[in-house]
Computed example of a mutant assay.
Amino acid sequence: MTSDIEQIHAVVTDVEAAMETKDVTRLLARYAADVVKYDLAPPLRHTGNDPEGLARWFAGFDGPVYYKVTDLEITAGEDVAFCHGLNRMSSTPTGSPEGFTLWFRMTAGLRKENGTWLITHEHTSTPFHMDGSFLAATDLTP
Results as ranks from 00 to 15, higher is better:
M1G: 14
M1E: 09
T2G: 00
S3G: 09
D4I: 10
I5Y: 00
I5M: 06
E6M: 07
A10E: 13
T13K: 14
D14N: 15
M19W: 01
M19H: 04
E20M: 13
K22R: 15
V24E: 03
L28R: 04
L28A: 06
A29C: 11
A29L: 09
R30H: 13
A33E: 15
V36A: 08
Y38L: 14
L40R: 04
L44R: 14
L44M: 14
L44K: 12
R45S: 13
R45C: 15
N49D: 08
P51F: 04
P51C: 08
E52V: 15
G53T: 00
G53W: 01
G53A: 01
G53L: 01
R56I: 09
F61D: 03
G63T: 03
Y66F: 15
Y67N: 14
Y67D: 12
Y67F: 15
K68G: 11
V69R: 07
T70Q: 10
D71Q: 14
I74T: 05
A76Y: 00
E78H: 10
E78P: 09
F82V: 05
F82Y: 12
C83Y: 06
H84W: 10
H84P: 05
G85M: 04
S90V: 10
S91C: 12
P93K: 13
S96K: 09
P97W: 00
T101G: 06
W103L: 09
W103I: 07
F104Q: 04
R105N: 05
R105A: 02
A108R: 10
A108K: 10
L110I: 01
R111V: 11
R111N: 06
R111K: 12
N114E: 09
N114F: 02
T116P: 03
W117M: 04
W117Q: 03
T120I: 10
T120M: 00
H121S: 12
E122L: 07
H123L: 03
T124E: 02
P127Q: 06
F128P: 09
H129S: 12
M130Q: 14
G132R: 00
A137Q: 09
T138P: 02
D139K: 12
D139M: 11
L140R: 13
L140F: 12
P142K: 05
